[in-house]
Design a protein around this nucleic acid. Structure first.
Lengths: 218, 218
DNA sequence: GTCAAGGTTTTTGTATACAGAAACGGCGCG
DNA sequence: CGCGCCGTTTCTGTATACAAAAACCTTGAC
């Protein structure tokens, strides 16, 4: 049989969870999913293991696996941590960044601005991601880079929403340039502060958004 | 059959990896392990999934699972991140900590000192852990608490080594008291700086240790 | 009418069997 | 003598079958 069946299933399930087909606390039935995907229970269980690695589901022994989707509170917590992660990366990168990487940052920023001007949302996301990943890498700490990228990836589905606020993109671009400047000047504290605020703002915007979306929920 | 077989196997394998029976890059043979534990391959694979969650092994598709033990460089990176984690927890906790928790910190510190005086190493480790976990909790950020505890746990086997340096325990105790003072004074920056240094020192000690142990390795 | 106990059903966990891919070795060719 | 190709073997991935535990429902007693 196809060797990467379990991986594909994991991806599809990931999509289903992100799309909201499965909500927080929902139990994922092995048998139903096995029938649905036309495979046995084994690759389903394998897929569950993959999802558990990403933190999307949690397996409770003898009970089954349950969708673990962060609620508003946990999401705010995650954004707060994300801001600190980026801040640390920036602080370290300010001392360790190479000239080549600085050029790459400026290039990513230029592409980013071009995407904004062209109204190319996908392009913006892609270049924005590149920008941040360069900073992660330049922290010179592979473990930090990995953990930061991990959380970044996990928050990805929720980041899209809050960027639709008018004027945020232009402001974000300005912040990017200030960050590049701080890194160029090798100013660790400034870079750390700028990056923290840059991401923290995303969290706040997100908070306002969910607050306006469901005011009666809490 | 016993329902928690896979969990037990996972624990045993964890012990084997920590004890050095399996080194970095070693491939874990499903069949051999199945024979060794007297079970089929299925619970072994289940155990692998658990270990992968802890980051102790890495599964490469169609190749098998391999022990992923951090080398000196990665370990240093992890200690650096650990220091930043604790620092963040301290900064947030300084603003959010409760009087009850402050009392608990002082109590843990007292027990800690008693253990040091009694030469009770295990007691020291336990109370020291309690001390730090209280701070994680008091950050008021459940996600941060979880991630910090996770990394703390992962570094646990390597922490034991570096504490055997003479005089470190007493110094560590003094740092603990300074940290409690900073939290009592609600001084976020001071608490953050103290905690960062408190943990960073561990990383440095560790670095010196491995440097002295294998000078020809690099 | 409510609660508890027992049996039934559903579901997880494990064992075994099989298919397909990757690693290994021998053979032939240049 | 070195290199590449093909058959063999070993191992991962998947399917199916079975055991055991938890959830569910029914039934009986208080």
């Amino acid at each position: 049989m196809e060797p990467r069946r379990a991986d594909q299933i994991a991806e599809e399930l990931e999509g289903l969870i992100f799309s909201g087909a499965f909500g927080d606390g929902d139990r994922l039935d092995e048998i139903r999913l096995a029938e649905r995907f036309g495979v046995s229970r084994t690759p389903i269980r394998e897929a569950f293991a993959r999802l558990a690695l990403s933190g999307l589901v949690e397996a409770i022994p003898r009970r089954g696996v349950f969708v673990r989707q962060p609620g508003p509170v946990e999401l705010m917590d995650m954004f707060e941590v994300m801001a600190e992660f980026e801040s640390i990366c920036g602080r370290l990168a300010a001392a360790r960044i190479s000239d080549t990487a600085l050029d790459q940052l400026r290039a990513a920023n230029t592409s980013c601005r071009a995407a904004v001007d062209a109204g190319d949302a996908d392009g913006y996301y892609r270049e924005n991601e590149r920008f941040h990943h360069i900073i992660y890498r330049q922290s010179g700490n592979a473990f930090l880079e990995g953990e930061t990228a991990r959380l970044h990836r996990r928050l990805k589905p929720f980041r899209r929403v809050q960027l639709q606020v008018r004027g945020r993109l232009a402001q974000s671009m300005a912040e990017h340039e200030a960050i590049v400047q701080a890194l160029t000047d090798a100013a660790p504290d400034r870079a750390a502060a700028l990056l923290r605020d840059h991401v923290a703002v995303q969290g706040e915007k997100f908070h306002h958004l969910i607050a306006s979306l469901k005011p009666a929920a809490e």
